[in-house]
Design a protein around this nucleic acid. Structure first.
Length: 878
RNA sequence: GCGAGCGUGGCGAAACCGGUAGACGCAGCGGACUUAAAAUCCGUUCGCCGCAAGGCGGUGCGGGUUCAACUCCCGCCGCUCGCACCA
């Protein structure tokens, strides 16, 4: 009789043994002696509080890869750290009067202990937190270096301003155009901000995507669209008339007053369909007119309440105002068009001015219809008739044939664009140009809990960097977070910002903005290669040895920004002399984006969110555990603290064990897709753990060593050996390709087959022992504790975690015959068993002779027989 | 609004390059063991028709390409993610 597997004893025992043997420590390059390196990294967490099972999926996936690589003889670097600056710490400070630092470090301590429960093969000696001055000191040094290299500058940027709280709001703090705390309508304000010149690398960031072949295509496409290189034309529209109050232009400053208005377009072929010009609300000309025209001022004011997020601006109903300016069409000086201000024109893209060609752009068409602006179609869709084709509510934005357009008539869209640009150049009214959607990265945040920007404002010397010897510029800890004293605590700190200018020694002030937390996460992967270096961000040799990250694992929500910023930072670090050995500037050689863990949401009758553990199922209905009241079962959503649909990791590990949690999040759903956390799924994982253990325990013999010669055996035992060796092939391949759910299914098949072989003869004992050994090894990346316990039970010394990965015997894994389906006219009618690789003629003969097939072919003529070797036979007959 | 992705039994899913749709798990049903329950074991499970052999239908919806379509193409519907100050 077998003993029950007790995870409460087994799991801590093995974690202690691994720690005592330091098996998770990455070897220094000189220790690694010919081993290849593998740097496996999961996106590091924000220390929000406690870990729930939803978080565990990301780390478990990385851990499977890390353990798999180690078994395959690699020197593995698998570190963990904390993305520890950010808004939630300040919110906690304001709501509960806890200092962000204490709150953050308490959370880190709690989460570290929880993560350790999972049995992750992490080199904890490399742990870092971005809020440590030992970390951000180097970030400040790099900021200064980037500055000196011309990659940092200052520029006015729009921000969301809460007029009641007197503070800048993040986009997520703006709800329906109002501040989330004050409820006051947000205003748009312009602030002088620090910028990183990401656009300096635009061409390279785009071109290099092609070489990132181990990234998901969807992420590559999103990056590429985000960078958004477009070819088009700048067009200058001469002003025909303007309100009298507009002054003459200052010399040499474009887009002022009476200068021609510069417009960017990708579709100069539709110029003859132009109906109006539209300027962004913050276009210089719009602002200049607003100073004298109350109606335009009101328009700008209305736009200022839309928020700064692109989604909000584009979703808002379109509105505008006639600016009273008239321009001449570049191809026809007698054609006069009105100039409008419009809320859907983005000042951050192109020149902040467009020409509206309503028949070819839905936004322009909606706008023209709303304000009764005339328009006519100039692009004829393929197959449409010029005499009858008309546009009313639906624009045609695709390629077609140009008409109603004088010298462009009859040309296709592509040719017409070239022809139109040629004409613009000839008339000196425009030129071809390349435009990027990518903008420079604004890194200033008016917040306390972030990395201070190492700059000093001096009335005499201007803005000067903090000298390297004075770094780090440390955050002061004696700050207050009273709700009635809004704004940035750094700014109102009594002494912190007052310093002497490093160049003239006069009175000066520190920059009180801190850095966007995306900066912290743009280089942490490099710091992990040399995390305790006091003098430099990292040693160039160590970073050169470990980088790039061989496998990066994280959520799709980071597909654009974090990854783009890290790619930028790696290039900037290279070009500023911090980093060698990453010549192409790419930090992540291979990327995997995993799906989330989702769970049903529960609400009480009173409308309060309920934790799953506070509910139960009675008579098929979900009720509140304490009161028995019925529970409202809501949507299945991403596990989040706010909706309480979380399962706490500690409690779960205590009840079921870390291995069950690890196995569950990897079974069933493909890793890139979301997985729903369910009690029944947990049960399946739990049963499997028990089954693996009871089979191993019941075997009662030491298992044969890898490569040990097999005795003669019955066909059933031989079949088990074949299946076990095929499982090695499949699981190896599945892990390599991130098909963890399929690997899990193969392990189930192996267990089922082991359980089926009941004989106790020598051959069977050998086959079963070998299969159990292979099973323990195959599950070891997934369920490391159970695997160690089985490994020990089977009589092996040392850790399964460090044992070499099993190798399949090709002779056993190979198949000698295959089952071929036979179709008649595409429908399966029979099956035949044929030798693997059998000649097509032989297979065809067998197929046609099959009685069922013959029956179907009666009275019909065989027209064609398709034989796909080892796959299928299809007989076409009528 | 723009960009990207996803959609297969009662449920999670598998199906590698266009070649047997539903591997594997959960749940269900039938049975064995048991005083009983749990656990375990055996069998069974896409729908419809049929005693059966077998047949017909079936991968969100509508078309198309092909000897053959979950897979490729066109058009819809639904859901999810990102949109630059959440991380």
């Amino acid at each position: 009789m077998s003993t029950r597997y007790n995870h409460r004893e087994v799991e801590p025992k093995w974690r202690a043994r691994w720690a005592a043997s330091a098996i998770d420590r990455a070897l220094a390059p000189e220790e690694a002696k010919g081993k290849k390196k593998a740097y496996v990294l999961e996106m590091f967490p924000y220390p929000s509080g406690r870990i729930h099972v939803g978080h565990s999926r990301n780390y478990t996936m990385g851990d499977v890869i890390a353990r798999f690589r180690r078994s395959n003889g690699y020197n593995v670097l698998h570190p963990m750290g904390w993305d520890a600056f950010g808004l939630p710490a300040e919110n906690a400070a304001m709501e509960r009067g806890i200092h962000p630092k204490g709150w953050t470090y308490d959370n880190i301590a709690a989460m570290r202990e929880q993560l350790k429960l999972l049995g992750l093969a992490i080199d904890w000696s490399r742990e870092l937190a971005t809020c440590d001055a030992t970390y951000y000191k180097h970030q400040q040094a790099m900021f200064v270096a980037f500055w000196k290299k011309g990659l940092v500058y200052r520029k006015k940027q729009k921000v969301n301003w809460d007029p009641v709280d007197n503070t800048v709001l993040a986009n997520e703090q703006v709800v329906d155009g109002k501040g989330w705390r004050s409820g006051a309508p947000v205003e748009t304000r312009e602030l002088e901000q620090w910028m990183f010149k990401v656009t300096a690398y635009a061409e390279d960031l785009l071109a290099a995507i092609e070489k990132l072949t181990k990234w998901p295509d969807k992420v590559r496409l999103m990056q590429s669209n985000w960078i958004g290189k477009s070819q088009g034309a700048k067009i200058w529209w001469d002003i025909e008339s303007a309100p009298a109050f507009l002054p003459a232009s200052p010399a040499g400053e474009p887009n002022h007053a009476r200068d021609p208005i510069e417009v960017y377009t990708t579709r100069p072929d539709t110029l003859f369909g132009a109906s109006f010009l539209a300027l962004a609300p913050d276009h210089p000309l719009t602002k200049a007119i607003a100073a004298h025209n109350p109606e335009v001022a009101k328009f700008i004011e209305q736009c200022a309440h839309l928020g700064t997020s692109e989604a909000d601006i584009e979703k808002a109903p379109k509105f505008g105002v006639d600016l009273g300016v008239r321009v001449r069409h570049p191809f026809d000086p007698n054609w006069i068009l009105p100039v409008w201000g419009a809320n859907f024109v983005l000042s951050t893209y192109g020149t902040g001015a467009i020409f509206g060609s309503p028949a070819g752009d839905q936004r322009d068409l909606d706008f023209a219809n709303k304000y009764n602006l005339p328009f006519k179609p100039v692009v004829l869709p393929p197959g449409a008739d010029a005499a009858t084709y008309a546009v009313t509510d639906e624009a045609f934005a695709d390629d077609g044939v140009i008409y109603n357009s004088k010298f462009l008539d009859g040309l296709g869209t592509r040719d017409a664009i070239t022809r139109a640009i040629d004409e613009l150049v000839k008339l000196e009214k425009g030129e071809a140009t390349t435009q990027w959607r990518l903008r420079d990265w604004g890194v200033s945040r008016q917040r306390y809990w972030g990395c201070p920007i190492p700059a000093i404002h001096c009335a005499t010397c201007g803005v000067v960097p903090v000298p390297e010897k004075d770094l780090p510029v440390a955050l002061p800890e004696d700050v207050t977070f009273d709700k009635d004293k809004p704004g940035n605590p750094l700014d109102r700190h009594p002494t912190w910002k007052h310093v002497k200018c490093p160049s003239c020694a006069g009175d000066a002030q520190r920059e009180t903005d801190t850095l966007d937390t995306f900066v912290d996460s743009s280089w942490y992967f490099a710091r992990f290669t040399d995390p305790n270096n006091p003098d430099a961000p990292f040693d160039k040799k160590l970073a050169g040895y470990w980088l790039p990250v061989d496998q990066y694992v994280g959520g799709v929500e980071h597909a654009v920004l974090h990854l783009l910023y890290a790619r930028f930072f790696t290039r900037a670090m290279r070009d500023c002399g911090f980093l060698d050995g990453v010549a192409d500037g790419e930090p992540f050689a291979s990327l995997f984006t995993q799906g989330m863990v989702v769970h049903e949401t529960y609400k009480s009758a009173a409308g309060a969110w309920l934790l799953p553990e506070d509910t139960d199922i009675k008579d098929g209905k979900r009720i509140e555990l304490n009161t028995g009241a019925p529970v409202d079962v809501g949507a299945i959503e991403k596990m989040s603290k706010s909706k309480k649909n979380v399962v706490d990791l500690d409690a779960f590990v205590n009840d079921f064990g870390a291995d069950v949690a690890r196995w569950f999040v990897l079974s069933d759903s493909p890793p890139e897709r979301d997985v729903e956390w369910t009690a029944s799924g947990v049960k399946g994982a739990w049963n499997f753990v028990q089954r693996v253990w009871s089979l191993t325990d019941a075997h009662g013999h030491p298992a044969p060593k890898p490569g040990e010669p097999a005795p003669a055996m019955e066909p059933e035992a031989h079949a088990l050996r074949q299946l076990a060796h095929r499982a090695i092939q499949s699981v190896t391949d599945d892990i390599e390709n991130f098909r963890f759910n399929v690997a899990v299914a193969r392990c189930y098949e192996l267990v089922n087959a082991i359980a089926k072989l009941k004989s106790e003869d020598g051959g069977s004992l050998f086959a079963r022992g070998e299969a159990l050994r292979i099973l323990a090894q195959l599950i070891s990346p997934f369920m490391p504790h159970l695997a160690e316990e089985c490994w020990e039970k089977l009589g092996f010394l040392g850790f399964v975690a460090t044992a070499p990965w099993p190798e399949a015997d090709p002779a056993l894994a190979a198949r000698t015959s295959v089952t071929l389906p036979i179709q008649v006219n595409g429908k399966k009618r029979a099956e035949i068993e044929a030798p693997k690789g059998a000649a097509q003629a032989d297979v065809e003969k067998m197929a046609l002779e099959h009685p069922l097939v013959a029956q179907f072919l009666e009275g019909q003529t065989v027209r064609k027989v398709i034989v796909v070797t080892d796959r299928i036979v299809n007989i076409v007959a009528n």
